[in-house]
């Protein structure tokens, strides 16, 4: 990189040295509580003359922003709400305006942290503090600051190609019919969003119900649906367990399950019993990828 001994550094190297001593200086150390991205201070000036900080880590890509992360206090509060106060994930998600999956993840991570503390394991407190100082944060406020939009509608692949669908001008063409036009089983947006109960509340209010009544009805229905789904899941697991006989050995558990061979068809489809009978495995061949596709904890 540097020039040969006795030779001056190249012009590229000189330019870099100049950058390092000049504009590069401010990126060496972080300023706690502020982001420090390339050219981040050079945003457009607002009306009161202050330069607006844009959390854009890559100057050439305006479509990527460094979005706030959850502050430690907020994570702790979410954990308390779910574990100590027993609030459901769905409700907590609405309370703190964050994705349901994020709520679950925070609870899981916090649980591990508590376990570490109980076991006397050392935490990376210093590292964590430094990282939190560098990143934009969603603080713990009352009422809660929105962390992310919670009702994201996943764009269904069948809605990507344009559909030409002639409809009479007099027809009252709603979202439900639009869903049918895209494909026979595509449900309307209000059903496919993660928090359909919020839609139901809004609809109830629009129909003239009192807010409390609408809320109660919607939450009742969603709670029943959630309980049903949970029951279905546990039943499936129970059924599976009932069908299998487990023999515990010192090293591992052997699981036996009664199966019925499909006699009607040939049985040689990928899920069929004995579909691979007589076919050698190729896992010792050269170039076979043996990276696991999932890890069950």
């Amino acid at each position: 990189m540097s020039g040969l001994p006795g030779r001056p550094p190249t012009k590229f190297r000189q330019a870099f040295k100049a950058w390092e001593a000049g504009p590069g200086q401010k990126y060496i150390k972080h300023r706690p509580g502020r982001t420090n991205y390339l050219r981040s201070g050079s945003g457009p000036r607002s009306q009161d003359g202050t330069v607006k900080t844009i959390n854009q880590p890559f100057p050439t890509n305006p479509f990527f922003r460094s979005q706030p992360v959850l502050s430690e206090e907020l994570k702790e509060e979410v954990w308390k709400a779910v574990v100590e106060r027993g609030r459901s994930l769905r409700l907590t998600s609405v309370d703190y305006q964050m994705d349901i999956r994020r709520v679950a993840a925070v609870v899981r991570l916090k649980q591990v942290e508590k376990q570490w503390i109980a076991n006397g394991k050392r935490l990376a407190t210093v590292y964590s503090k430094a990282v939190n100082e560098m990143l934009p944060q969603t603080p713990l406020t009352k009422p809660a600051t929105e962390h992310e939009p919670i009702n994201d509608l996943v764009v269904h692949p069948s809605t990507l190609p344009q559909v030409f669908w002639p409809v009479a001008e007099s027809q009252h063409f709603t979202r439900v019919e639009a869903g049918e036009a895209f494909g026979d089983k595509l449900l309307p947006a209000e059903v496919r969003i993660p928090h359909p109960q919020l839609y139901e509340i809004a609809k109830g209010i629009a129909q003239g119900k009192f807010m409390e009544v609408a809320k109660e009805e919607a939450w009742d229905r969603i709670q029943k649906a959630d309980i049903k789904a949970q029951a279905r899941l546990t039943n499936r697991i129970k059924d599976q367990e009932a069908r299998t006989t487990t023999v515990q050995s010192p090293r591992s558990a052997f699981k036996f399950e009664d199966v019925t061979v499909d006699t009607k068809s040939t049985g040689r489809y990928s899920n069929g019993i004995g579909a691979r009978y007589g076919i050698p495995h190729e896992d010792r061949k050269k170039g076979q990828i043996k990276i696991p596709t999932k890890v069950i904890g």
Binding site: L70, E72, R102, V112, E113, L123, A124
Partner: peptide
């Protein structure tokens, strides 16, 4: 979703 104190 990163939790820095436990590097997880």
């Amino acid at each position: 979703e990163v939790h820095a104190p436990i590097c997880s």
